[in-house]
Every structure is written in structure tokens, then in C-alpha cells.
Design a protein around this nucleic acid. Structure first.
Ligand SMILES: NC(=O)c1ccc[n+]([C@@H]2O[C@H](COP(=O)([O-])OP(=O)(O)OC[C@H]3O[C@@H](n4cnc5c(N)ncnc54)[C@H](O)[C@@H]3O)[C@@H](O)[C@H]2O)c1
Ligand SMILES: NC(=O)c1ccc[n+]([C@@H]2O[C@H](COP(=O)([O-])OP(=O)(O)OC[C@H]3O[C@@H](n4cnc5c(N)ncnc54)[C@H](O)[C@@H]3O)[C@@H](O)[C@H]2O)c1
Lengths: 205, 205
DNA sequence: CAATAATTGTTAATAAGATAACAACAAAAG
DNA sequence: CTTTTGTTGTTATCTTATTAACAATTATTG
């Protein structure tokens, strides 16, 4: 089954929001309710759900629990994947706090840094280790995804290190665009782009 | 002139990278060099540049300085826009550090929080103020864009506050999706989506 | 029980975005 | 001076993404 990239992004958002709604005790949800949550159209929601092969109930909507589980089957692996974070500065800490315990199948199991004051402690329940240990720990902790939040001028060497250690995917939040080998999946984000987009769109008026 | 949304995003990225290259002393650049930086195709670059009406020189490429200036005319206003950040936690601090002095036409001029220990100080050169002052300061500091980094359960009231104060655009990094009036431009980002996208794409192999 | 309203699932149509193709031409090489 | 090479600018094509349209069907209303 091939799924469009944008559908994957929305599935992730659906799940995050459905989990919250489920926790409030709601059992079924209509496409237009999901749509309203994410400022998209109900058709879009129904189409995505169609693509993953799920069927709702006419006039009752979608079973929230079932939908969440199915999204899990699509995004997650059975055993789950382990994640590490490179660079425990403000940004890295924000990510750890935010992520902690949120996704059972996607665990941040270690943070790597070079600052001796940070190493050896736990942060948000996650051990902070020295970068020298990376190679060994990626294997022993079975880490397949790395998040890069080191300073600009350390991003390249950090990425190379991860690649050499056999990482499968990287999320790069450092502002240095990376050029990775094809077999490593890369996702980059820079908030300056977000903010400048808003700046552009608020120019008029 | 109408520009596609994706082109705006890329223009922002072009500029960020061109500024770095300019600082290194390079004066001209080819489309394929820009393309390589951002993992896109040279055609894409040329097309974007065409859309903004800039002309390079055949076989010399684009004048980096001119290109940067033109992108500035498109994204920025002449006087610049002022930005505030709501919630100075780890995430807010990371943004302030990162942004500080980086974009002359897009200044973060205040951070708002409710924690008395934070208020009254400077962080990364930016004054930390109490949320109660928001309404007055948005006017006196001429703030038109707000960045939300308050906790999940405070995001809605914070957004409403900004809207009531006449904000023109919001970047929402809190994990709570917002429903804003049409005249306020909204940009949202959640890193869980980025990470889960990587998780999905690294499932196979 | 008939009529109406609401909702899904799916195909068809449209729109947005990316890539390919190539003419034009300037610089470099021969 | 002629040919080759490299690069831009632009149109045409292809691909991906979104929206519209509507049949099917179930619940609700009268
Ligand atoms: N993409 C975005 O939107 C965005 C936003 C904010 C910051 N950033 C970028 O993220 C990065 C981190 O920002 P921050 O505010 O957390 O910075 P920071 O300085 O607070 O943290 C960086 C951390 O990395 C550690 N470090 C340095 N070299 C290292 C190495 N070789 N290996 C491992 N760890 C190393 C440092 O000890 C420090 O703890 C910067 O590049 C910044 O520009 C990006
Ligand atoms: N979108 C993402 O990718 C992403 C990533 C990390 C964190 N987050 C979210 O960002 C938010 C902030 O994360 P953090 O790690 O910085 O949290 P934090 O707890 O460190 O910081 C929150 C700050 O907001 C302040 N605050 C609380 N209520 C406020 C109010 N009403 N007005 C103004 N300030 C107020 C607090 O005093 C604190 O300083 C959270 O909602 C978190 O879930 C999102």
C-alpha cells in the first residue's frame, strides 16, 4: 500500500488529537469533527481514512480507538523504534520534555553531548551520555533514528557520525542543511522559515 | 505578483544560506550550487528565481547580494515587523537564542511569561515581561507577529489574547491546534509529526 | 412506514507543485 | 573564427494533492 507523504503527516496529527479526545471519553467521531480540529476539509479526512483502508460506520462516524490503532500499525513498527538526541541544549531539552512518555512505540532512549557537566545525569528520565559512546550505544540500545540539535558548526560531523553508526533516519533541527547518503531518510525543519512565511503573509493589510 | 507558498518557503531558505555564503566572500552562485545546498533540483531554483522576476547572468550565475536583497523586498516590509514570544520555557529560550540578531527586519522585541522569577530580566537581549502588559506593549512596541510556546493547556487563552490585541499572524509551537479568525495568519508546527514521518519511512529496510 | 436528513466511500475534476525539455546565448577551447 | 560546453529562462509535461460531486445507506422525523 502506497500512501502519499501528506497523508502520513496528517495521520500523525489525527492520532495525536484522537488520543486526547479518546481520553476525554468520546468513542466515535465524524470526519467533519476531525477536520475542524486541524483546519482541513472533511473530504480530506475521509480520503485519508479511505487510503489506509479503514471503514467507519454510516451516521455514527469512526471508532476512535480502532482508528488510532490502525494509524499505529501504519506508522509504528511492532517492536517500536528507539531514538537518540544529539546535543542537549535548550532545544534538545524542550524536545525531551515534550516527547517524554508520549509515544510508546517511539522512545528517546539517550541524549548525547560533549559537555562534561551534562554527562552522567538523567534529563526527563533519559540518560545523558558522551558522544564517544555513540557507536556502542546505537547498537546496544538498538537506536535507529537520531535527532540533531547541536550547534550549527557541529551539525555536519554529528550527522556523519550517526550515518557511520548505521542510523536509518535523521531529524535535523540544526540550521545546517545536510547532505546525506540516499539510504538515510532525512527530515529538516527551520523555524525561521515558518516565521518568515507568516511575515510574508501579514505584509498586506 | 502571486507567489506559490512553497516558493516563499524556499526563498527563505535560499536567503539564509546565501547570507552564509556571501559572508565567506563568494559573489556569484549557480542554480545547481543552491540546489545542492537544499537537496532540490537546479530547475526548481531557477523557476523560483524566475517567479520573483530576478535575472542572473548567463554563465556567471546569480549575484548573491542582489538576490538576497530581492528576497528581502519580497518577504520583509520596509520598516520591518516586530515579533513577541509567549512563554519563555526551554523552547522559547531556544528560539530567542537562535533568532537573536539574525533577521534585521524581523525582531523579537519582547517575551511574555507569568512566572515572576523570569519577569523583569533580559534573555538573549530581549526583555521578559508579564502577560498583563501584553495589550499595552503590542501597541507601544508595534508587534504584529506572535510566537506561542506556552504549555498545551494555556495555548488557547494565549492565542485569544493575541488576537484580541490585534495581532496579524501567529506561529503556534504549542501542541494545541488553534482555530483562529480568518484575518489572522496561522502557521503551526509539531515535531512529533516530523519524527513520526521519519519513523514511517525507516520502517522498511 | 414514508420522507427527510446526515454521513460515509469513492470516483471524477481541478489545482498546485515539480520536473523535463529546450532555445538562447555567453564563455572557453581549439 | 568556429565549435563545444555550460548555464539561464521559460514553456510544456507530468505528478501529487485537494476539492467537488454524488451514490449508497442508515438514522431520525413526521
Ligand atoms: N531549526 C530550528 O528551528 C532551530 C531553532 C532553534 C535552534 N536551532 C538550532 O539548534 C541548535 C541547538 O540550539 P540550542 O539553543 O539548543 O543550542 P545550545 O547551545 O543550547 O545547545 C547545544 C548543545 O549541543 C552540545 N554539543 C556541542 N557540540 C556537540 C557535539 N559535537 N556533539 C554533541 N553535542 C554537542 C552542547 O554542549 C550543548 O549542550 C543550534 O544549531 C541552533 O541554531 C534550530
Ligand atoms: N511543536 C513542537 O514541536 C513542540 C516541541 C516542544 C515543545 N512543544 C510545546 O511547547 C510548549 C512549551 O514547551 P517548553 O518545553 O518550553 O515548556 P516550559 O514549561 O519549559 O515553558 C512554558 C513557559 O510558559 C510559561 N507560561 C505558562 N503559562 C503562561 C501564560 N498563560 N502566558 C505566558 N506564559 C506562560 C511558563 O512560565 C514557562 O516559562 C508546550 O506546549 C510543549 O508541549 C512543542
Amino acid at each position: 500500500m502506497h500512501l502519499p507523504d501528506k497523508t502520513i503527516e496528517r495521520l500523525s496529527q489525527y492520532r495525536r488529537n484522537l488520543l486526547i479526545i479518546l481520553a476525554k471519553g468520546k468513542e466515535f467521531i465524524f470526519s467533519h469533527e476531525i477536520a475542524q480540529l486541524l483546519h482541513i476539509t472533511p473530504v480530506q479526512v475521509r480520503r485519508d481514512i479511505m487510503l489506509i483502508g479503514y471503514n467507519g460506520t454510516l451516521r455514527r462516524g469512526y471508532d476512535i480507538k480502532e482508528l488510532i490503532d490502525l494509524i499505529g500499525i501504519i506508522i509504528d513498527t511492532d517492536e517500536g523504534q528507539n531514538v537518540c538526541i544529539m546535543g542537549l541544549g535548550n532545544f534538545g531539552k524542550a524536545i525531551l520534555n515534550y516527547f517524554a512518555g508520549k509515544r510508546p512505540k517511539l522512545k528517546i532512549v539517550a541524549a548525547f553531548d560533549i559537555n562534561p557537566e551534562k554527562i552522567g545525569h538523567l534529563y526527563a528520565g533519559v540518560p545523558v551520555l558522551h558522544v564517544d559512546e555513540l557507536s556502542a550505544k546505537i547498537i546496544s540500545l538498538n537506536i535507529s533514528i537520531g535527532i540533531i540539535t547541536v550547534p550549527f558548526d557541529k551539525a555536519l560531523e554529528t550527522a556523519n557520525l550517526l550515518v557511520d553508526c548505521g542510523i536509518k533516519g535523521i531529524v535535523n533541527f540544526s540550521s545546517k542543511p545536510l547532505n546525506l547518503p540516499e539510504h538515510v531518510y532525512l527530515e529538516e525543519f527551520d523555524m525561521i522559515t515558518s516565521i518568515e512565511k507568516v511575515a510574508y503573509h501579514t505584509k498586506r493589510n
